[in-house]
Amino acid sequence: MMCEICGAEEGQIKYTKVINGEKVEFFICRNCAKEKGFQTPDAVSAEGRREEEKIQRDAVCAMCGWKLTDVEKKGKFGCANCYEVFRPYIRNLLNKLHGKAKHKGKVPILDEKKLLIRKRIREVKEELDVAIKKEQYQLAAKLRDRIETLSLKMEESDE
C-alpha cells in the first residue's frame, strides 16, 4: 500500500491517531513519519532518540501486524518489512550481535524480466484451471497456447 500522506512511497508504518474520539489507522512512509515531527535515528539529541524510540514503540508493521513488543518477546521478526519499520531498533541490535557490520557476500541474481514472465505464466495457469473446470475448452486451448508462448519467451531470455 502507498503512503496515505504523500502517496509517493510505500506506506510501511501503521500510524494510529485518535480523531474525534475514534481511532483511525493510516499507513505512512518513513519520510512522512519524520515530517510529522518524528526525528531521524541519526538525530544526536537525546530528545530525538527518545522520540524515535517512541515511534518505534507505537509503530505497527503494515505487512504482518507486529509491534516492537512482539519482536522483543519472540526474538524474531514477523516479515521482511519489519526490517524497514523497526530499522533503527534492528541496527542497534545488530551492532550488539555482529558489531557495526554491513553485509558482505553474495547478492541475489534478480532477473526482473524473467520473474515477470513466471508470474504471468502462473496467472494464466490459474485461468486455465478455471476454464477446464467450467468446460470452456476453446478458451482452455487458447490459454494453453499462451502458456507455451510465454515459456518460449522465458527460454529465449535464458540465452
Binding site: K76, L93, H98, H103
Partner: peptide, 15 residues
Amino acid sequence: KDFGYLTACPTNIGT
C-alpha cells in the same frame, strides 16, 4: 543491501 538476506531470526541475517 546493508542487512543482506533477511531472515526471521536476526542472528542469521547477512549471508
